[in-house]
């Protein structure tokens, strides 16, 4: 018969190890650390075509993640995609004429939003709209353009 004390110690150790494993997975094996922290402020932008952009895709400036895509919906009046961007509060540095473009990571990777700062003094605040946007590159349009140019050259 095992000593009750020893048994309790083992159970405590078991639970502690399990929780430690969970914590390790959460912190070291995932992006939790970048998720927590400030709630961030929201900015919206409209695109003709978002391509493969997904909710929670990163928003980057100069390659550094500054926020995440929060929502994607359709604007029924302009027939364009309305994308909600949540930017971390500590990056309240973007001029109001900042532009947003949808790029692809690598050749075949996931899509993200890259912000290019403008020159205005005023900065974007919660609820502002980014007006200068560049949609994602759609392959078919590119090919179509290429063929059209080739045809125009030939004449």
């Amino acid at each position: 018969m095992q000593d009750k004390m020893t048994r309790d110690v083992w159970v405590g150790l078991f639970v502690a190890l399990g929780l430690a494993a969970l914590v390790m997975l959460a912190l070291r094996v995932s992006n939790l650390t970048s998720l927590t922290g400030d709630a961030g402020y929201q900015v919206v932008a409209q695109f003709d075509n978002i391509g493969g952009l997904k909710v929670r895709a990163p928003i980057k400036l100069a390659g550094v993640v500054v926020g995440r895509v929060e929502s994607i919906s359709i604007d029924a009046e302009t027939f364009r995609a309305e994308v909600g961007l949540r930017i971390e509060n500590r990056y309240d540095i973007f001029p109001t004429d900042t532009s947003a473009a949808i790029y692809t990571s690598g050749l075949l990777g996931e899509q993200y939003i890259a912000l290019s700062p403008g020159a205005e003094d005023a900065v974007l605040k919660d609820g502002d709209r980014i007006t200068l946007t560049q949609s994602s590159i759609v392959l078919e349009n590119l090919i179509g353009q290429f063929l059209y140019n080739k045809a125009a050259e030939g004449e």
Partner: peptide, 8 residues
């Protein structure tokens, strides 16, 4: 807990 330990 066991699954977390396994993965970790």
């Amino acid at each position: 807990l066991l699954a977390a330990m396994f993965s970790a």
